[in-house]
Simulated assay, not measured.
Amino acid sequence: MPTAFRRTARRATLATLSGLLGAGLLTAVATAPPAQAATTCSGTAAIYGVLPDNRLTFSTITPATGELKKVVLGADLGFEARAMATLNFNTVLVTSTAGALYRLDVLTNNTSLVLERPPVKLFDSGWTHDKLTYDGHGHLYGTAGGLLLQYLVSQPKPTGSAHIGQRREIGSGFVLKTLAAVGDDRLLATTSAGALLSYKIGSDGGWSRDDLKTSGWSAFDQVVSPGGGLYYGRIATTGAMYWYKDANPADGSGADIAYHNDTPVNTGGWTQQLLSAQPETFSCTTSVDPLDGTDIPAVKAAGRDLMNKHDGGAWNSTTQWNCLSQLWDRESGWRYWADNPNSTAYGIPQALPGSKMDAFGDDWRTNPVTQIKWGLSYIDGRYGTPCAAWTHFLDNNWY
């Protein structure tokens, strides 16, 4: 792994912050604050990339903290890449500088990244797009010469014009620095002047635009989103990657975007010339019947259910549950209003500061489900399993 991807500075920051978790005795306010509408988020952030030497990369980021979890490198693609879009976990579309469109069939795990077969050329020419992005709902978007184009992708592994077609010109004047899909026919873009823009594409091909920010985003040459209002931006000059959480990506406002500039994914090392997030691996849902957070047995039951489902059921065991149950018994008593008097740690997992949990829902102060999902993601990215986190707590009195 190139030194460019090392996380030394990032780990040092997290170690300092994490060292305060669990330190000191925790107290809770006398009464729990009233619950609000329950909007919770969950999932992962998976990003494919192409290095300047045309090797493929695959990275995962822990949504709870923005920490880079892993990065693996693959083989040379055999052609000079120009634009890319991720269709699903093992299918990526990449254009060449010669105007061809290729399908990459990817096989990856924690240690390796290979192509199941050589790149499959779907089109010999005509794909001169400078940007591509896929919305996860059948629509592939691209820009070429300021023209925004939409295509229908009808198969998870398209084989050519039979599965990528219905070319539609959405409009001209789309001279954008970055382009990313953030949901069903929803796009996020930045301009060279630093504006952050949101587009909604209608079923008839019409579109509307919201100006989320008028400035401040000019440094990013790559912006990607795994969905759920989670945005990642790469600065080309330093290779740094920063992350942001939009509480409501559909409201047309940038006022509710949380900036996590104090805890970047990395301060350097992201040297890929292209980046593309797997769409909709991170999502948010709103419940009209939120869990009664004052019913601790019910909260713990929800916690076990969420733990059992985490990472495809990898933690679904009595052993892991016993570790998680004891860990958060000690930290907070599973109270969503638990407040550490010696720090700004808050909630069931004692996030420090509590506002970190906004990545998993803007109701992080009062929704135990939001807090539990954040806590599971934190444990996964930091320790790997609840038992590893519990062991660390027993040795150090923090996790």
Rank of each mutant, 00 (worst) to 15 (best):
D211H: 14
K300G: 02
L197C: 05
G202V: 13
A180F: 07
A180Q: 05
A219K: 14
V265N: 02
P279M: 05
G269R: 09
R186P: 03
A247P: 05
G233D: 02
V223K: 06
G239V: 15
F220R: 06
S215E: 14
R234S: 12
V299E: 11
T237M: 09
K177C: 03
G227Y: 08
C284F: 08
D185I: 02
T294D: 13
T178G: 05
T281H: 10
I170D: 00
G254L: 01
Q166W: 06
R186W: 07
S276E: 12
A219Y: 12
Q273F: 15
G173H: 06
D210K: 08
L230S: 09
S172K: 05
V299Q: 09
A277R: 11
W243V: 02
K300W: 02
A258V: 15
T263K: 10
P279F: 07
P226Q: 09
A189C: 00
V175L: 10
D289Y: 15
G228W: 00
D262E: 08
T237I: 09
D292E: 13
Y242L: 11
T294R: 14
I201D: 08
A255P: 01
T238L: 13
D262I: 07
W217H: 13
G205K: 00
Q278C: 05
Y244V: 04
A162G: 02
Q273P: 14
A219I: 15
R168F: 06
G293S: 12
D204T: 15
L275V: 06
L230W: 14
L188G: 00
D292C: 11
T286G: 09
L179H: 10
R234G: 11
P264S: 07
